[in-house]
Design a protein around this nucleic acid. Structure first.
Lengths: 233, 233
DNA sequence: CTCCCTGCTATGGTCTGACCATATTGTGGT
DNA sequence: ACCACAATATGGTCAGACCATAGCAGGGAG
C-alpha cells in the first residue's frame, strides 16, 4: 500500500495503517455523527488487509469513542456509526479504577469535589432544574434499590451536566458507573431513602434559587448521609 | 425501545470478558509497572477463548495506556508490559481533544476545580510542602519557557498529589500533560513569570500555614493570572 | 390490493489454524 | 573461552469457516 516502504522493516502495524486510512476517509468524506463506516469485510477488501486488522482498528476507534460500540447485526444496518466522542473517558476510567486498586473512599472523595463544584455552578446559572426534577420523580417511582440507584445516578449525572463542563460530566459518569454496584448495596443497607430524597430536594431547591453556597453545602451533607462511613470532610 | 436506556441485558462480547479477566488478574497478582502479562497464546488458552479475542482486548488495553505498545518479539521477552497508570488517561485525553470539540476552557475550568480542592486538602493536612518547594526552586532556575512549564507542571501535580487522592492526582496529570504545549505558549505570551511565582509562593505559604480557605483563594487567583482570557469564576 | 409470513443474504462476533520475521536461548564446534 | 547456529516462543497477520441476527424481497393468504 505504501510502495516506498518495505525497506528495512515494517515499523507500523497493519491496524495502525487501517486507523490512519479510516481517519483519512472520515475527513475526506466529511462523515459526521450518525454516519456509517463501511462494513468490516468491505473495509478489509478495500484496504487490502485482513478482517482481523480491521477489527483491531475498530476496537481502538471504539475505545477512543470515535465509533459506537453498538452491536449491530444484519445487512446494511450492521456497519459502524460515528458517535459523539463525549463518552470517550467512560470505559477508560472504569478500567483505570479497576486496575489501580483505588479505594472507594477516593472515588467518593472525588465525587464530593465534583458535585459540590457542579452544584455551585448549576446554581449560579440556574441550570439543569428539569433534568434534576425528572430524576427525582423517577426515584419516587422506584420500587427496587436498583431502580432507585438508576435514577439516583441520573440525578447526580444531571448535576454534573448542569455545570456545563463536558469533561467534568464525563468523569462523573464514569465514577457513578464504577460504583453502581456499591451504591445499590449502600441503599439497601440504608433501608430508608427518605433522607436521601430530602437531600436531593434541598440540592434542587438551592439550584433553582440560584444559591451556590447553599447548593454546595447541600451536596456535601447529602453525600455524608449517603456514605457516612466513607465520607471525608 | 429498550425502556431503561441502559439496556439491562447488554450482551458482552468475548473480548470484554477478557478485559475484565485481565483486569482481575492484574489486581489479584498485584502486578505493577514493568511487570509482564502472559503471552497472548497462553492467555487465550487460560481464559478459554481464541487469540483473536485476546488480541482485541490487548488493543483496548494499549489504547487505554494500560500496557505498552512495544513490539516485543522472541520467546519470553515478547509479552506485554504494564505502563505507569499515570499515563492511562493521557493518551486518550489527548486524542479526545483532537477528535472532539472539547475546549481548552473546559480543561482549565476543571483544573480550577481540582486545584482549589486539592490545595484546601493539602492545607488541612499541611502536606506536600517539600515537593512544592522543590518545584518552586526548579522554576526559579529555569531558563526557557519549556523548562519553566516543566517545573510548573511538577508544582501543580504535587498540589494534586498532596490531596492524597490518587484518582484526582491521575486526572490532574492528564490535564497538565494535555495542555503542556498551550502552557508554554501562555508563559511566553505572558513574558514575565514574576506574577506566577508570587502565586505559587502564596499557595505554598497557605498550605504550610494550614489555611484551606486562603489556599483555595490563592489557587483561584493564580489561575486567573495565568489564563486571564480563559478563566471562569 | 393489502398484509403477513418465510426465506435469502449480509452483518458483526468468534474460532481455528496457519505463516512470517524476529528475539531469546541453548548447544555444539572451534 | 568464545562464537556460530539451530530450536523455540513470541507478536503480527492472514484466510477461511461457523453462528445468531436483522433487514429485505418475494410469495401466499386475506
Amino acid at each position: 500500500m505504501d510502495g516506498s516502504g518495505w525497506g528495512p522493516v515494517k515499523r507500523t502495524r497493519t491496524f495502525e495503517d487501517v486507523l490512519a486510512q479510516i481517519e483519512r476517509r472520515i475527513a475526506e468524506d466529511g462523515l459526521t455523527a450518525g454516519d456509517r463506516l463501511p462494513a468490516e469485510r468491505r473495509l478489509a477488501e478495500q484496504l487490502g488487509v485482513s478482517r482481523s486488522s480491521v477489527r483491531e482498528a475498530m476496537r481502538v476507534l471504539e475505545t477512543l469513542g470515535v465509533v459506537s460500540s453498538q452491536v449491530g447485526r444484519g445487512p446494511d444496518a450492521g456497519a459502524v456509526l460515528i458517535a459523539r466522542p463525549d463518552s470517550a473517558l467512560t470505559g477508560l476510567l472504569r478500567l483505570h479504577l479497576g486496575l489501580a486498586t483505588l479505594e472507594l473512599r477516593e472515588v467518593i472523595d472525588t465525587r464530593h469535589m465534583i458535585e459540590q463544584w457542579a452544584a455551585a455552578r448549576a446554581a449560579s446559572a440556574r441550570a439543569g432544574g428539569e433534568a434534576l426534577a425528572a430524576a427525582l420523580a423517577g426515584m419516587d417511582a422506584a420500587r427496587t434499590a436498583e431502580e432507585f440507584v438508576e435514577h439516583d445516578t441520573a440525578f447526580h449525572c444531571a448535576l454534573a451536566d448542569a455545570s456545563g463542563n463536558r469533561l467534568v460530566s464525563a468523569v462523573m459518569r464514569s465514577l457513578r458507573d464504577t460504583m453502581r454496584k456499591f451504591s445499590v448495596e449502600a441503599v439497601e443497607r440504608l433501608g430508608d431513602t427518605a433522607i436521601l430524597r430530602a437531600g436531593h430536594v434541598r440540592i434542587l431547591a438551592a439550584i433553582e434559587a440560584g444559591d451556590p453556597g447553599e447548593a454546595a453545602a447541600a451536596v456535601s451533607e447529602h453525600l455524608a448521609d449517603a456514605y457516612p462511613e466513607l465520607f471525608t470532610h
